[in-house]
Design a protein around this nucleic acid. Structure first.
Lengths: 339, 339
DNA sequence: TCGCTATGCTTAACCGGGAAAGTTCCGCGC
DNA sequence: GCGCGGAACTTTCCCGGTTAAGCATAGCGA
């Protein structure tokens, strides 16, 4: 089956292809009657402008890129990314933009992908995930002048727009809640060190614990995987002064932690309370259901995509603070057992 | 920063752009010395051919499309898709193909996306997920002659290539195992009716149960979500002749089922055994860990992508039967309690 | 009646590659 | 010394859109 081109539409309508272009793009230069006729013919023969030709002349690819640097196992199990992508997609497809996805093995590979996309003009802009402290991707994107929106922050995103949510405030809500329940020994199983939001949480954890007068607090680093979450939990629960509450940096590790506690014969929440960061449906599927920090991740992605499209259109919008995650108490938290 | 074009390379090398094109594409027509010089210059100034220009002249977009028709919530929580995408990506990026992703709301919207992609020449081919009985997408893709590989089958994929795995054999392994343990009352919580693999499993479940002489068997339909899995489990476990084992069509529902059983005061596996179909890391994170049907999903995606690239290159390969899922017994299955 | 402008279109150049066709130039055989 | 073949390039056209520039025609005021 032959793909209809603008010339086919023009021939049928008995006009030049220039006129068709004006008519289809809502430009002045054709009478209303002609425009309607052209639109009808285009619809009738199912004409869609060749994106390559359009990109070549118009200099806009009508696509944005997303490179993810996480191993397949973690990408699969972390609901965060898929939910984010859904939200991004919703915004993009409403404006007929395509999403080009690439999974990469390292930050270097990611930078190479950006350079390639830029050189190939394959995308008009990119969304950057997993912002790191002094992220090497930022200066490259600035040098290339490739429109970009960083998901994460604040800070360390250079001159790039970013969309962020206040991790410190969310963590404060969790800790104040746990302290109000009577907990004094609170541990945290953190995500990958080096990721900005991990560092922000680690610092906030220290600050808030000091302010609340908690001294026996500890943060253990992990990599967001269930295995690591389980190992960290085992270590914490085997120590002499066992924490009475553990906050996990994602839901997968929290579920692993719950499982370890049950394995070790500890009751949740009586012996140990558990809080998850990011509230996927998984948190409600386990028993007891997990108290979690909830936020609307598809909306987060949609906001980022919207800002990126604005940045591509040449409107530098500055930073955008998204909704702060809020605590949803469920069955995994309770006052600690009295000694 | 200006994007280098083939003309920039040509100017620097003191040759015509035709020569550069020959040199970069490994065509004869330039001396080896010139070729090396051109390659060095291209590398030095970071030249990447504009994908739009290449697509326009060469008629290949160097991209494949994947449209997913599932709500955000389910996409997020189902590790299947992300793992599949990882595998697809691995194969594509090794051959410098891009993946264009789109989340759609309905099969009609998905068909519209295929038509648009085809008209826009945005992709060279597509991967089709969630094959249905008498799938309406198949004739459209055949009419458009858009290269496609269906993930799922066998059957109902018309003349399109497909990659499939034998669901019936896998289900047989599960049922024979459960019967060997002594179970006679086995229930199944199925996925979305209408999806081909759901129907294949439902039919196989009936056939195998009859062959094994099980009469009190039942299949409940669901939608793959945890909520539905939980509801179905509640109904099954509340009935007069409660099953002693339940097979779930995915891991999310299995985890929900496990949680419901515990909620209802039933011990797993003593009171009820649980088997999950598709073994994501989640299955090992819950307590007890879930007996599951395991297969290498990234590999499944990689095979599909590989076949699609072959189809795009014009080599019709026919169908490909991927590895059959195999059972990994864990803590959630045991002989039923003697009455 | 003449010129001026606005309208509605056509023409042609351009984007950046690929590739067919054309052009040098060199070596070689006769 | 001439014709021939082929290597090594160059020239040119093409892909399918967008868009600046050009060009009739109509309408209108002076």
């Amino acid at each position: 089956m032959k793909r209809p081109t603008i010339a086919d539409v023009a021939r049928r309508a008995g006009v030049s292809k220039g006129a068709v272009s004006y008519a289809l793009n809502g430009q002045p230069g054709v009478s209303d009657a002609t425009r309607q006729r052209i639109l009808a013919i285009a619809r009738e023969i199912g004409f869609n402008p060749n994106s390559a030709a359009r990109a070549l002349s118009g200099a806009t690819a009508n696509a944005v890129g997303l490179a993810l640097c996480r191993p397949a196992r973690i990408l699969g199990i972390e609901p965060f990314f898929m939910e984010l992508i859904s939200g991004v997609e919703a915004e993009l497809s409403a404006r007929s933009y395509a999403l080009t996805l690439q999974v990469v093995a390292s930050p270097e590979a990611e930078i190479a992908v950006y350079r390639r996309w830029w050189g190939e003009r394959r995308v008009d802009g990119v969304l950057v995930c997993d912002l790191r402290v002094d992220d090497r991707r930022v200066p490259v994107l600035e040098e290339l002048r490739l429109p970009a929106v960083v998901i994460g922050g604040p800070g360390h995103s250079g001159g790039l727009d970013h969309v962020w949510s206040d991790e410190a405030v969310a963590l404060t809500e969790v800790l104040e809640y746990l302290v109000a329940l009577g907990h004094r020994q609170i541990a945290r199983v953190g995500g990958l060190p080096g990721l900005l939001h991990t560092e922000i949480r680690t610092e906030a954890f220290g600050t808030v614990c000091r302010r609340l007068g908690l001294d026996r607090t500890v943060t253990v680093s992990s990599d967001y995987s269930g295995e690591e979450g389980a190992r960290a939990t085992r270590r914490l629960l085997s120590s002499a002064d066992r924490p009475t509450a553990i906050v996990y940096d994602n839901d997968v590790m929290a579920i692993a932690g719950l499982s370890v506690a049950q394995e070790m014969g500890l009751a949740v929440p009586t012996d140990v309370s558990i809080v998850a960061w990011d509230d996927s449906p998984l948190c409600q599927l386990v028993h007891p259901s997990l108290t979690a920090l909830h936020r609307d991740i598809p909306a987060y992605g949609a906001h980022a995509a919207g800002r990126l499209l604005a940045a591509i259109a040449g409107q530098p919008l500055g930073d955008f603070q998204d909704e702060t995650a809020h605590l949803i108490p469920r069955g995994s938290t309770a006052p600690p057992r009295q000694p």
